[in-house]
Design a protein around this nucleic acid. Structure first.
Lengths: 230, 230
DNA sequence: GACGTCGCTGAGAACACGCTGAGGAATCGT
DNA sequence: ACGATTCCTCAGCGTGTTCTCAGCGACGTC
């Protein structure tokens, strides 16, 4: 159990201080944290569907937290969202929850409450690990239909191949070692050799190649594999 | 959506005035409301599992809201619960959410916020167990008449076959594993093997085939089954 | 340029998965 | 009581999938 794939949280706030504080706190809880400072970049990051939860401030430059949430839901992204508002406006609360938010916090909030809300939200979406759509470049992984498409063309994958691709895509951008992948995809049992990962990456590449996405899975020699949006 | 069964909400509060107000308000929303004034009776009512949501005050005579919630979860009752507290104690919120609450309100709260939380909670749990007709492509499932048609032709199904098809259709677009289906259609108590699902999918397909809908139930090897409109 | 390490791939054996026909037990309707 | 219906188990078959192995090429280092 070296570097497990942790819970991934996206923190969106325009104040750098708040971002830093939340990032540090959540990391201490053992979560992977990614931050964004404005609406558009929050939307861009969130729509990849690779997060387990979003912490979304309402007051944002570019695109309000409301709009970000609204857009995400429209696009079928069902990642749990906790809205954060600066002042206790009741109407705001109502609107936010109706838009599909899963929780609500009013500044200033204590870290204890934040952690509790996060846990509640994660418990609900449970081992399910969010049933939305993962998008990466032209690649689409529909987790509820268990279907993979690239530029519209569906790619038929075996269960193992699918699990591997999903795991790689969920860690989008980061390099996953073969041991990481063995633990995540093959389970904690030491039943399989490392070579099986290479074999299955090969299978994946061949099938992705057939639809023009051959170079999505990149080898990082000596370290592992990585999927990129290019 | 013909003969809809209303959403049933259990309201628990020791103050008669609060109970009355909430009852009137929620009824106006078209919900069925049952009230309880103390912990033990709340527990007795809630454990029947016939409610779509619980509105649970924390300060209660006999048994605190916490304990009621705790007991329910221990007993496997997963009805969504919104906790109501008299004062804004942070620790309370944290504890409550960790105990398995689905929402949290602080008195005094506006009805708008309450309604929003309720809706959010109901949306999540799919409290939308609408009766009526499910349509999928040429397929029609009349749930009140327990009748299935395809392009006008009725399909005679046994109870099990019907339950299976209905469950599959309700999850339209998503892949349901055999274990999902066993739990939903056969019930948790059953010690049925997974093969029975395969057998019944076979029965279904044969009957649907006879009216030209043979390819509606798709096998996703290694994952489960899925009904598609195509 | 030689060597060891690392990653890729084709072949093939073992296995798991899903489908089906047969049949037994229980229940229902007449 | 009788057949019809329903529910479920079982065993067998075909096929897809998983995984190991061995060989080979690519890469980096000295």
């Amino acid at each position: 159990m070296l570097s497990r794939v942790n819970t991934r949280v996206l923190v969106v706030d325009d104040e750098a201080g708040v971002r830093k504080a939340l990032e540090r706190g959540l990391r201490a809880e053992g979560m992977d944290v990614v931050t964004a400072a404005d609406g558009p970049s929050a939307l861009r990051l969130a729509r990849t569907g690779t997060f387990d939860a979003l912490l979304l401030d309402i007051m944002l430059p570019g695109l309000s937290g409301y709009r970000v949430l609204q857009r995400l839901r429209e696009e079928g992204v069902r990642t749990p969202v906790i809205l954060v508002s600066a002042k206790d406006g009741e109407i705001d609360q109502a609107d936010g929850l109706d838009l599909g938010a899963d929780g609500y916090l009013v500044k200033p909030f204590s870290f204890v409450v934040l952690r509790a809300q996060l846990r509640a939200v994660l418990r609900r979406t449970g081992g399910d690990r969010a049933r939305g759509v993962v998008r990466l470049g032209g690649l689409e992984i529909d987790r509820s239909a268990r279907e993979v498409r690239f530029d519209g063309a569906t790619v038929a994958l075996s269960p193992r191949e699918y699990a591997l691709l999903e795991t790689l895509a969920r860690g989008a951008g980061t390099v996953l070692t073969k041991d990481d992948l063995l633990a995540e995809v093959w389970g904690d049992e030491r039943a399989a050799t490392r070579n099986v990962v290479e074999v299955y990456v090969g299978y994946l590449r061949r099938k992705l190649d057939a639809v023009g996405a051959g170079d999505m899975v990149r080898t990082v020699r000596g370290h592992g594999y990585q999927v990129t949006s290019g």
